[in-house]
Amino acid sequence: MRKLSDELLIESYFKATEMNLNRDFIELIENEIKRRSLGHIISV
C-alpha cells in the first residue's frame, strides 16, 4: 500500500466500492487513506 500514490489509492478505493469487493479489502484501503490523512477526500 505504501508504494501507491495518493491518487492511485483514492482511485482504488472508489473502484473497490463500486465493484462491491470484499469488505476487508476495502477496509485495508480505508485504513491506509486515514494513515495518510486523506480521509476528507472520501469522508472516512
Results as ranks from 00 to 15, higher is better:
4 L>V: 06
9 L>V: 03
6 D>S: 05
12 S>T: 15
32 E>F: 02
38 L>F: 03
24 D>Q: 08
6 D>G: 02
26 I>Q: 03
34 K>F: 13
37 S>W: 07
4 L>D: 02
2 R>V: 14
9 L>P: 00
31 N>Q: 14
1 M>I: 15
26 I>P: 00
2 R>G: 15
1 M>R: 01
10 I>L: 11
28 L>F: 05
44 V>Q: 14
3 K>H: 15
10 I>T: 03
42 I>C: 03
25 F>L: 12
13 Y>E: 00
30 E>S: 08
30 E>V: 15
43 S>F: 11
2 R>H: 15
41 I>A: 10
22 N>L: 07
19 M>Y: 07
15 K>M: 11
43 S>D: 12
7 E>L: 10
18 E>T: 10
23 R>M: 09
18 E>L: 11
42 I>D: 03
26 I>V: 07
29 I>D: 00
19 M>N: 11
5 S>P: 07
40 H>Y: 12
17 T>V: 15
32 E>W: 01
41 I>D: 04
7 E>S: 10
32 E>Q: 01
40 H>F: 11
12 S>G: 05
32 E>V: 02
22 N>I: 05
19 M>I: 06
25 F>V: 10
21 L>G: 08
22 N>A: 13
10 I>Q: 02
31 N>K: 11
34 K>G: 04
44 V>S: 13
22 N>H: 10
10 I>P: 00
2 R>W: 15
16 A>C: 05
11 E>Q: 13
14 F>D: 02
12 S>H: 14
41 I>N: 06
27 E>G: 07
7 E>R: 11
23 R>F: 08
34 K>A: 09
8 L>A: 15
23 R>Y: 08
3 K>E: 15
12 S>M: 15
5 S>H: 03
35 R>I: 05
11 E>R: 11
12 S>Y: 15
7 E>W: 11
3 K>M: 14
28 L>C: 07
39 G>C: 15
39 G>Q: 13
15 K>Q: 09
37 S>R: 13
7 E>M: 10
13 Y>S: 01
38 L>T: 02
6 D>K: 04
5 S>C: 06
32 E>C: 01
32 E>I: 02
29 I>R: 00
19 M>C: 09
43 S>I: 13
16 A>I: 04
38 L>M: 06
21 L>P: 04
40 H>P: 06
1 M>T: 05
32 E>M: 02
4 L>R: 02
34 K>L: 13
35 R>C: 03
9 L>W: 01
30 E>A: 12
27 E>P: 02
4 L>M: 14
28 L>R: 06
6 D>A: 04
26 I>Y: 03
15 K>P: 00
30 E>T: 12
14 F>M: 10
1 M>P: 05
41 I>K: 08
20 N>M: 10
16 A>S: 06
10 I>D: 00
19 M>R: 06
33 I>D: 00
12 S>W: 15
33 I>P: 00
34 K>W: 10
24 D>M: 06
23 R>G: 07
34 K>V: 09
23 R>N: 08
30 E>G: 06
11 E>N: 08
11 E>M: 12
39 G>E: 13
35 R>L: 06
23 R>I: 09
2 R>P: 06
8 L>W: 07
6 D>V: 05
18 E>D: 07
11 E>K: 11
24 D>N: 10
15 K>C: 10
14 F>P: 00
34 K>T: 08
42 I>L: 12
39 G>W: 15
36 R>H: 01
14 F>K: 10
32 E>S: 01
21 L>E: 10
13 Y>G: 00
18 E>Q: 12
20 N>S: 09
19 M>G: 09
33 I>K: 00
17 T>Q: 14
41 I>T: 07
18 E>P: 02
39 G>M: 13
27 E>I: 12
37 S>H: 14
21 L>H: 07
39 G>P: 05
42 I>N: 04
16 A>Q: 05
8 L>C: 09
15 K>R: 13
32 E>T: 01
36 R>M: 01
30 E>W: 14
19 M>L: 14
6 D>M: 04
21 L>M: 14
26 I>W: 03
16 A>W: 07
25 F>A: 07
13 Y>I: 02
38 L>R: 02
15 K>H: 12
33 I>M: 12
26 I>G: 01
44 V>L: 13
22 N>D: 14
18 E>V: 09
35 R>T: 04
3 K>A: 14
25 F>S: 06
17 T>F: 12
28 L>W: 04
26 I>S: 02
41 I>Q: 07
26 I>E: 01
8 L>P: 01
36 R>P: 00
22 N>K: 08
12 S>V: 15
34 K>I: 12
33 I>H: 00
35 R>H: 05
4 L>K: 03
31 N>S: 11
6 D>Q: 04
13 Y>W: 14
44 V>G: 14
26 I>C: 04
17 T>G: 06
29 I>M: 09
3 K>S: 14
8 L>V: 14
27 E>N: 11
1 M>F: 15
38 L>K: 03
17 T>M: 14
1 M>N: 03
13 Y>M: 02
21 L>W: 11
17 T>C: 11
32 E>P: 00
44 V>M: 13
8 L>M: 14
38 L>Q: 02
16 A>P: 01
33 I>C: 02
24 D>F: 05
20 N>R: 09
17 T>R: 13
37 S>L: 13
25 F>Y: 14
40 H>E: 07
9 L>I: 04
15 K>W: 12
3 K>I: 09
27 E>M: 14
18 E>R: 08
15 K>I: 09
14 F>L: 10
2 R>Q: 15
22 N>E: 11
41 I>W: 11
13 Y>N: 00
27 E>Q: 12
25 F>I: 12
32 E>H: 01
14 F>T: 06
42 I>V: 08
18 E>M: 11
36 R>N: 00
2 R>I: 15
34 K>P: 00
44 V>R: 08
43 S>A: 13
17 T>E: 07
25 F>C: 13
24 D>H: 08
6 D>F: 05
4 L>G: 01
16 A>R: 05
41 I>S: 06
21 L>R: 08
29 I>S: 00
16 A>Y: 07
8 L>H: 10
25 F>T: 08
29 I>A: 02
30 E>Q: 08
28 L>K: 07
43 S>R: 09
8 L>T: 09
36 R>E: 00
22 N>S: 13
7 E>F: 10
16 A>M: 05
1 M>C: 12
25 F>P: 01
